[in-house]
């Protein structure tokens, strides 16, 4: 896995995230290993790292290259104003009695995700690597975006990023890794959101009704419930007295 992730350096996804061979190995093993990923990434953008590790050949890259103009200007603006900082989430659960294969299969069919991620209204697969996402907001309209799968390692890892013109630029990966001594499969999700300029963390969380961290945590919990217990625990629809 490390080899897959680290031996390619032909990406020009994002100059600011261009990594040396040694650096790529370090990042590759970070994503494949047991450490906390976000701690190791520090100032790097997750999107840039995922792009650079996945290598070329994706339509997104050209576009991303063009985008970096805007990114560069916006980046300077944002660092001057302290706004537009990315929001990062890392969450892991261990799922008992299920192989990485089963869990990967569920996830790889992205249209399954709204079953466990309650903030998603729908995910529609539009091509082998592209999908269209619709998420509910607590107030106002839903938001929509397209995403592209950037790496797909069967039974191990799926990474993706939103493509151009997403309201909330986001990227991330999910990793499936057998735990030692038959203690189940560890499922780790790492996500990065870049809210539109001018929207900082707290406002973003309010916009989404709960924090992105909580959304991912809840989604993973529901995934675990469904895979281990066959259903998602609920009390919705049960009786109660006068409220």
């Amino acid at each position: 896995m490390e080899e897959n992730l680290s031996n390619q350096q032909n990406s020009a996804a994002d100059n600011s995230n261009q990594a040396s061979v040694g650096e790529q190995e370090r990042l590759g093993s970070l994503i494949a290993g047991g450490a906390m990923v976000l701690m190791g990434l520090q100032q790097r953008s997750l999107r840039g790292v995922l792009m650079s590790l996945a290598g070329g050949g994706l339509a997104y890259h050209g576009m991303a290259g063009k985008k970096s103009w805007k990114d560069a200007v916006q980046g300077k603006l944002e660092s001057a104003t302290g706004m537009g900082q990315s929001i990062r989430v890392e969450r892991t659960v261990t799922i008992q009695n299920q192989s990485p294969e089963t869990l990967y299969q569920f996830w790889r069919n992205l249209e399954n995700l709204p079953t466990v991620m309650k903030h998603l209204q729908s995910v529609t697969v539009t091509s082998p690597t592209r999908s269209h996402w619709v998420a509910n907001l607590p107030v106002g309209d839903a938001i929509e975006w397209d995403a592209e799968i950037i790496a797909d390692q069967e039974n191990r890892l799926i990474s993706w990023a939103s493509v151009e013109a997403a309201d909330v630029e986001n990227s991330g990966f999910v990793r499936f890794q057998p735990s030692s001594h038959n203690r189940g499969t560890e499922v780790k999700v790492v996500m990065e959101y870049n809210p539109p300029a001018g929207i900082v963390g707290a406002t973003f969380a309010k916009l989404f009704g709960e924090s992105p961290d909580q959304q991912i945590a809840d989604g993973l919990r529901h995934f675990k419930m469904l895979m281990e217990a066959g259903e998602i625990a609920t009390t919705e629809g049960q009786p109660h007295g006068q409220r």
Binding site: G184, K224, E228, A229
Partner: peptide, 26 residues
Amino acid sequence: TISCGSCFFCSRDLWSLCDNSNPNAW
């Protein structure tokens, strides 16, 4: 205690520690 019977804890006879029965675990 509400227990799923299949999680890490239930399968170790630690039923009141079930991972999957509290919708408000957060």
